[in-house]
Amino acid sequence: MKLTDQLGNQLILNSTPKRIVSLVPSQTELLFDLGLEDAVVGITKFCVHPFHFKSTKTIVGGTKQINIEKIKALQPDIILCNKEENTKEIVEACQEICDVHVSDIITINDCLELISQYGQLFNKRTNAQKIIDKINFNLKDFQNYIKDKPTLKTAYFIWRNPWMVAGNNTFINYLLKLNKFENIYSNLQRYPEVDITKIRKEGDPEIILLSNEPYPFKEEHAFELGRHSHHAKTIFVDGEFFSWYGSRLIKAFSYFKLLRERL
């Protein structure tokens, strides 16, 4: 089988991979939903879905730091990485062990392509198509729901000390646009540091979204931001629905509806 991953790397596989190491939490969840639980042998400490994996699979480190010897010992047929989650050095080290597939996700179409590729790679085409169909159905339903809703100027915070937000060229920004949240920091790339004392001058958001991952924001942080914004409404959001792709998207759109109802 020949397959080109989302970074343009070509994989040539003689047989369906039977031992998988996943270094990306949302992709680990996707593997489970594709029916590949028994094939997954290694995951990261951030792979929290499904919950029981942390006690049944080997933890090989995080997404930015891995134990390469642990991975070697698992004798994987393939290692699954992501351009944003894993460093170039990690990918190169993994390529010394076995085949590596790297995803690169900015849009929902990128997600659907990844699901389709996993369907091919792991001989789960029917399961993959079912997930794709569910996402497309729920997406269309959500687009009908959101089309008449007002656009709201928004800032999406992911970190504090330093304060960091989601900017342009990210999956989060793509989903913000889908939700008709106009990202005031979309003129900045990726995940920039920002000065919250300038938040009014730099966009004056109506809504501030505080993600519960990777930083555990609390009420005092909302209060701190509120002092600098112009009466922006601050809402704590489930970051998994804004940053996890794969099968997580099936559930995301009903969450987005509930979020909009709270505004």
Results as ranks from 00 to 15, higher is better:
Ile79Phe: 08
Ile12Cys: 14
Asn138Ile: 04
Lys140Asn: 11
Tyr245Ala: 08
Leu188Trp: 05
Thr58Arg: 01
Lys177Leu: 11
Thr154Arg: 00
Glu89Lys: 06
Leu210Trp: 04
Glu84Lys: 02
Phe241Gln: 11
Leu7Ile: 15
Tyr156Leu: 13
Asn179His: 03
Ile172Met: 11
Ile68Met: 08
Asn123Pro: 07
Glu96Trp: 04
Ile79Asn: 02
Lys124His: 09
Phe142Met: 02
Gly167Thr: 06
Asp148Val: 07
Val60Ala: 03
Ser116Ala: 14
Glu113Val: 14
Leu112Phe: 06
Ala73Asp: 15
Ala155Met: 11
Ile71Ala: 00
Ile43Thr: 00
Pro216Ser: 11
Glu89Pro: 01
Trp244Glu: 04
Ser211Ala: 13
Ile184Lys: 01
Pro162Thr: 10
His49Cys: 05
Glu37Leu: 10
Thr44Val: 08
Ile199Lys: 01
Ala222Glu: 14
Asn86Arg: 06
Lys130Met: 13
Lys218Met: 13
Trp159Phe: 12
Gly203His: 03
Phe253Glu: 02
Leu263Val: 09
Gly226Arg: 04
Ala128Gly: 03
Glu92Asn: 13
Ser103Arg: 02
Ala128Arg: 02
Glu224Ala: 13
Phe53Glu: 04
Ala93Gln: 14
Glu240Ala: 11
His52Leu: 08
Phe122Glu: 02
Pro150Leu: 12
Ile158His: 07
Asp5Glu: 07
Leu152Ala: 09
Lys218Phe: 08
Val60Cys: 03
Val41Arg: 03
Lys201Thr: 05
Phe142Arg: 01
Leu258Glu: 15
Gln75Glu: 15
Ser26Cys: 12
Glu89Trp: 07
Thr197Phe: 12
Lys45Asp: 15
Ile250Gly: 00
Gln120Trp: 12
Lys198Val: 03
Thr28Trp: 04
Leu259Ser: 00
Ile12Ala: 14
